[in-house]
Nucleic acid binder design. Sequence first.
DNA 1: CTGCATCCAATCCGATACTG
DNA 2: CAGTATCGGATTGGATGCAG
Lengths: 110, 110
Amino acid sequence: MKKWSPETSTCSITYTLSIISSKWKWLLLYKLFQNGVQRYGEIKRSIPPITHKMLSQQLKELEEESLINRKEYPQVPPKVEYSLTTKGETLIPVLELMSQWGAAHKPAVK
Amino acid sequence: MKKWSPETSTCSITYTLSIISSKWKWLLLYKLFQNGVQRYGEIKRSIPPITHKMLSQQLKELEEESLINRKEYPQVPPKVEYSLTTKGETLIPVLELMSQWGAAHKPAVK
DNA sequence: CTGCATCCAATCCGATACTG
DNA sequence: CAGTATCGGATTGGATGCAG
């Protein structure tokens, strides 16, 4: 989504939305919460529709917001693990509610 | 955000995200929760950065998802009031959490 | 006042190729 | 394996004008 100064509104929710503005970010955070520490490829495989580009980009942005940790192992081939930071963990209640809402309202799975 | 079939993942949160995929929608729902029934112009004034086009578009989409009610008064000039539906109200806990998270994590307001 | 349509710029995002 | 860069088509979203 668009760049957006949180200051344009006094409303707290806008700050949250200015940090996590895309659907991929919520989903990535949720996956890391569900599955714990994960490697790049594991995340990629767990979300089939996401492209390589989107995944790297979104992970990078989440890292910049200090919501996830990136741990790189200096070896060949490279190995990188992602996990929620303490700050990222504070979003878990939100993620759980969103997931529960989805479960309660989505049409019956065929 | 993009069109996205919820079926591409078995994860419930993706359904939620496929319904409310944009930052404006969360914000609009939150405003309706905070302020109750509101007219088009009132909403517009309460969210300065939103454009006329975005507001109508997002309201329409929320209405199509049965998250908000649209009540039109057949008079001139027209008067239209928006409010949360019962389904929309089920999102209130999520909205509150998002707002609280924002309040807790946003940098001190100068 | 509310809503829709149009034009057009800005951006998003997928595909692909290349690096260490 | 993990990440970056580039290209180009698709989509988004702002400004504006018109209509009921």
